[in-house]
Write a protein that binds this DNA or RNA. Sequence first.
RNA 1: CGGGGCGUAGCGCAGCCUGGUAGCGCACCUGUCUUGGGCACAGGGGGUCGGAGGUUCGAAUCCUCUCGCCCCGACCA
Length: 580
Amino acid sequence: MRYSQYLLPTLRETPGDAEIISHQLMLRAGMIRKVAAGIYDYLPLGLRAIRKMEAIIREEMNRAGAIEVLMPMVVPADLWDESGRWQQYGKELLRIKDRKETDFCLGPTHEEVITEMVRGTVRSYRQLPLNLYQIQSKFRDEIRPRFGLMRGREFIMKDAYSFDLDQAGVDLAYEKMYQAYRRIFARCGLNFRAVEADTGNIGGSSSHEFMVLAESGEDAIASCHACEYAANVEKAECRPQPQVCCDEAPPLEQVATPGRKAISEVSEFLGVPASATAKALVLITDSGAPVMALLRGDHELNPIKLKNVLGCSVLELATDEQIEKLTGAPVGYLGPVGMKIRVVADLAIQSGGPWITGANVSDAHFRNTVHGRDFAVERFADIRNVGAGDPCPRCADGIMEMWRGIEVGHVFKLGTKYSASMRATVLDDQGQERTLVMGCYGIGVGRTVAAAIEQNHDDKGVIWPMPLAPFQVLITLLNPKDEAVRAAGERLYAELQEKGIEVLLDDRDERAGSKFADADLLGMPLRVTIGSKALQEAAVELQERRSGARSLLPLAEAAGSIATQVRAALAAGAQEAVHG
RNA sequence: CGGGGCGUAGCGCAGCCUGGUAGCGCACCUGUCUUGGGCACAGGGGGUCGGAGGUUCGAAUCCUCUCGCCCCGACCA
């Protein structure tokens, strides 16, 4: 491609509303343009990167035995009624009507459609197993789209759905997808972790998320430094500690703590560490029932764990008014002693103590609070977030490390949630009707490209990993009006294309400085600079974007040498995928 | 949906408080010049100041209402 004839509007200045680096660089490098909140144009360069990503996904999905299909983006409400999600899904589902006033939605995910497809086409166990995937634009009317392609409302997703006769079948399908995902992200040159995840509202049993490690990541993940254990903090377990309390604790004692409400104030005032205190939070479940969660002062509540313990789907912090009405105690001095509402306490409360707790009256706390003796707990459970330095729940001496991650992929065992409600069945070898067991597997295509930029850039611009680079090579003609320069550039351009290398030829009549700045910004892995000086020696200059390393190549050998380097870089990614 | 902020040329912004000719930088067009890290000079095009009402002789500026967008909190690829 000739730059002078391409549509590649680079921006010198950073658009004001772009927060994270990948968003800024994608705008500046002319890859995307915002059309509305969370809705983007993919300009030619951005589309090329997206297509690279899609090609890798297709190869690996096909290798794993999945089959590509394409489902409609506009989905009739009837299907969503069948699964019950027309009611459940909430405002994220963009609902529309056609001219006959029939309800439709823009598909945010396609379990219903694929289940309908399969139940209408698959009758026998002999047609199984089946894994169908598509790469398609989805629409979710997110409350708060942000970060460019990282969290758009319209976004390109690869979604796959597996169908099996039984649990063993879906276990195998899941394992295949898990391995395919490892290969996909490894081939992209990404530093990622596969972590155990909460299954959330979609339901189902096992679930792993594929997280690209990045400071800007919206998810917190925990991993063991010693063993393989890694999980989203939403899910990461805390190892129960041995009981260390409290045979000899002195009796409960009320102490004055005037105006000290926050844990930090109380612990400072009483001269004890926050870990010697217990904090009480009041929450309201979806049925309107109040519950007190009791945690060590320096620990954080994990609302998802608590939801799972309580078996509810909504859990909200009570307002100050609600708290005082429900407990009769002032906010800031809450404690479990004599509490009327049910108390669920974290395991750390069970193993430790005695505790400093609120006295349920203004300006006072209790010392030496011991569970069982001074207060009752309905249930002890793991309801807190793991923290850095906590012991690993799986191995003997591991300790947990914390990371930020961008969720680029998610694999799920769905079970029969959709196949049962939508009656997707086949006959087994006994002639018995069996409900299909499903799995679903998603990859955010645009998000993965954005994540790759988060992980591969410097202060000048993008540094593309070879497998995702929109062009593998950029040739910069320093002075395109110089006949010798132009001739050499055209020759190399033609030779490289002949060898199947993707080349962008910067033939613009611009100053060298502008072209170099754009070259850094665009970030193609290999850059060839052709200027009159080196040409006098019949040489061109090759520069590697990532390292900045430069070398002179004889013009006659340049194409061969560059093509070899491109192939080596691509092969290295694939190699990584096999062993990674 | 709550809280905060912003809408002025393609992009980044000033002007608004204290009403009176709509401005700056970059980008764009023409010419001369220049060409190894965003060159110089000269000339030029482009804005119903998000929209609608109102106040006023006069509104980008003051008031009301709207729409859009961004940032901080609960969902997800």
